[in-house]
Amino acid sequence: MNHRRTGLLLILPALATVVLLFGGGLGYGFAQSLGLAGFTDTPVGLAAYQRVTDGPAFTDGLLLSLWISTVATGLAVALGVAAALALRRTAAGRRTATFLAQLGLPVPHLIGAVAIGLLLADSGLLARAARTVGVALPALVADPHAVAVIAEYVWKEAPFVLIVVLAALGGPVAEHERVAATLGARPRQVLRHVTLPLLAPSILAVAVLIFAFTLGAYEVPALLGRAYPQPLPVLAYQRFTAAELSGRAEGVAVALLIAVIAVAAALAYTGASRRAVGRVTGARR
């Protein structure tokens, strides 16, 4: 009992900071979205939520956001895992991997988006190069499938996956793979029955991080996306900075809905990963 009280006292400063900074902002935003706070003409209640979810802009934006996050996460994970498996064998490979990651990770997404824009836009490097050999590329920037947005996310996040998976491969995975080989497993069987199951918890963790980040990030789709439909973060910002007094409440409402979706995704992940980790460690739930 005494012990527990001491523990509570010890985490109090950290807890207070989190509650104040995170909970405070979130709570104030929530109050604004309900018309309870801020300079707004929104009536008290769920009016702002009703207004933003009414009509196709929200639904189209939600679908686009989910499309971008899902495809970007899937591609980044596939590329990162494949690269990690290919590069881990040699010291030179590991150095290359670290170098690649160091190259990409510190570059802000905004800069990445500009670079991708310069490369993929209708007047960009790629289109001009293609034109000289007589090929006309389809629109890649501000296109219906958000190719440029996804490309930017994959370019940025695949090295992140690579680093995480390389770290996970540093554990006893290699020893288990050797055991599997001595038991007669062909390389493909080793990958399918040993390597990937052992990496599953790390891969799931990094996937949910990327999914939640791409779902909430604003700058890349704002720069490289279309005017309509707008993914949710862009929609939120656009409503938040709109001229009408009601826009602020609506913007916050959209932002909070993004948070709800991200939390739902994280919870689904936690369930899935606990099952995966349970399978790996044998921990009882």
Binding site: E175, H176, R178, A181, R186, P187, V280
Partner: peptide, 20 residues
Amino acid sequence: QPPHRRDLGVVFQRPLLFPH
């Protein structure tokens, strides 16, 4: 021949059972 084609079983110092 790679290990998986050799007709053998190996036991290492640590059991290295597959945890999954």
